[in-house]
Amino acid sequence: MIIAERKPFAQIKEMLAPYQRICVLGCGTCVTVCMAGGQKEAEELAALIRIQRKQDRQEATVEAFTIERQCEFEFIDQVLERLKGYDAILSLACGIGVQTLVEHVPALRVMPGLNTKFMGYPVAQGVWVERCLGCGDCVLHLTEGICPITRCAKSLLNGPCGGSAEGKCEVSKELDCAWHLIHDRLASLGRLSLMAEIQPPKDWSSSHHGGPRTIVREDVKLDRGE
C-alpha cells in the first residue's frame, strides 16, 4: 500500500492561512491503514486547526470527513456538492488523491496534508518499510522475492557491492544489505547460479524515467462502442 506521513503543522498552518471555510478530507484506504489520513486523523487535525485559529484570533470553520477513496472519480462525485462549499480542502490522501480531486473538479482548491512517502507495508506496529519503486519491469523472479531496485541503496542488479559488511548496507548499519539477503535466499533454494548470470542494463523507460506512465486496457474500457 501507499505509506504517507502528516506534514508538519507549521506548514499546514501556512498553506491554509488565506482560507476561512476549510475541509479536512480523509481517505478510507491506504492512509487510513497507515494511520496518517483516515477519519481519526482528519478529526484530530481539524481540532488542531480550530485551536490554532482561535489562539491566533483568525476566524474559521473547520470540518472533517472522510470518503472511501479520493483516487476515484465516483467516490468524489458522491460528495461533490458538499466539497464545493469550502474555500479550501486539506486532503489527507496521498498525492494521488489530491491530484484526482483537482483533475476531476478543477474549481476546488486542494492542499496536501500529507507527505506521500512510498509503497510498502508495516513490519511491526508503527513501523513501515519501503518495498517497491514501481519500476515497471519487475525482477522479483530473479531474486526470489526481494526487490534490489528498492532495497539496495544503489539499485544494483548484479550482486552486492564492496560495501556490504556483516549483512548490512554501507549506507547504514540499520539497513540490511538487500543483496546479502538475496544471496542467502537463493542459496537456501539452491538457485545461487542465478547470481552468476550477468543481468543486462535495466530498461528504465518503463519506470518514471520514461515520463508519467499510463496503462490502457482495451478489454476493460467502456468506450469501445461495441
Partner: peptide
C-alpha cells in the same frame, strides 16, 4: 566501480544515478 554512496560525500542530497551497475559497465 560502483562508487561510494552519495550519502558519504559533500553533496549528500545528490540524486544517485546508478543507471547501470559496475558489472554492466565492464560489459559495456
Amino acid at each position: 566501480l560502483s562508487g561510494d554512496h552519495q550519502k558519504f560525500g559533500n553533496e549528500p542530497g545528490a540524486k544517485g544515478v546508478f543507471d547501470i551497475d559496475s558489472m554492466q559497465l565492464i560489459k559495456a
